[in-house]
């Protein structure tokens, strides 16, 4: 081993200089090291990620394209140029729900594992990386997994002809990732604040994720719902991401929210979650 036995007190200056030099890379790239570790851990369930990422859209698109869409004889939604196929309508929402599912997977138990069950964050914390970098690294890794899922979806959407615009289909994964983060970053903040897991994540799954999935205009236009249920959609990242995706696919009908408004809601949700989450990471680790 290379611990230098010849080191003496005269090296005090060099201790300082060594420290100043050694921290340059971690200060700059610390978050990427955390992401690297996290992605390596994901390899343990890489099969699930790949099969889920490709299998889920395949099943949905087949099931809805061949089954449900054939059964609906009247179009239920319209784009800029009139009525559109059910598959077109539903595809962007399914893609966004896939990235949100990734968020639900990755920003819950993995966070508690870091703080509590395996104390991985404490190990990282003793290294040069900062709590903020730990939080950022977690997010980078999750964006990686979301990107895989969203792109896989995008490719299948194009192959199935489930979009009105191939060009739009290229951009939709970015919107889906933003939707996933708008849901995921507030969830990250919440998970980071949990000291004892007593089933909170099951509650999130059943009473937040499931209602959002059902009442966000995923399978039918939000306007179909009575007005008192529509606010669920307004606060739902899924609805906003799906609506942007639909506009990219086949344009928006008259009277729809403008794209910038949807994006703004998503950005604000993601930014607030991010700011709060980072603060909680710092508070817990320092």
């Amino acid at each position: 081993m290379s611990v230098d036995p010849a080191r003496t007190a005269t090296d005090e200056l060099s201790y300082r200089d060594e420290a100043l030099a050694a921290a340059v890379r971690p200060r700059r790239f610390g978050a990427w090291y955390v992401a690297e570790h996290r992605l390596r851990s994901m390899r343990a369930y890489g099969g699930t990620i790949v099969i889920g990422g490709i299998g889920q859209p395949l099943l949905y698109l087949l099931g809805i394209g061949l089954g449900l869409a054939a059964f609906l004889d009247q179009p239920i939604a319209s784009g800029a140029h009139g009525p559109v196929s059910y598959l077109w309508f539903v595809a962007p929402a399914l893609m966004a729900s896939a990235t949100i599912t990734v968020a639900l997977d990755e920003f819950t138990y993995a966070v508690l594992e870091g703080f509590k069950w395996r104390r991985l964050f404490w190990a990282m914390n003793a290294s040069p990386v900062s709590p903020q970098q730990i939080a950022t690294g977690m997010v980078i890794a999750v964006i990686g997994r979301m990107a895989f899922v969203a792109v896989a979806y995008g490719v299948l959407v194009v192959l199935f002809g489930a979009t009105g615009s191939v060009l739009g289909a290229l951009v939709t994964p970015f919107v889906a990732i933003l939707g996933g983060l708008a849901f995921g970053l507030p969830l990250l903040a919440y998970s980071a604040s949990i000291k004892n897991e007593t089933g909170q994540f099951a509650v999130v799954q059943r009473f937040i994720f499931t209602p959002l999935f059902l009442f966000s205009g995923t399978f039918y236009p939000l306007a179909t719902l009575p007005i008192w249920l529509q606010p669920i959609g307004w606060v739902s990242p899924l609805w906003h991401a799906a609506e942007v995706g639909r506009t990219l696919s086949y344009g928006s009908p008259p009277g729809a929210w403008p794209v910038w408004a949807h994006l703004l809601v998503l950005l604000v949700m993601a930014a607030v979650g991010w700011a709060v989450g980072r603060r909680i990471f710092v508070a817990r680790l320092r």
Partner: peptide, 14 residues
């Protein structure tokens, strides 16, 4: 290591 942990945390930890 000749540094203040308040200002040079990453340097010290490295």
């Amino acid at each position: 290591l000749g540094l203040d942990p308040d200002t040079h945390g990453p340097e010290i930890r490295s």
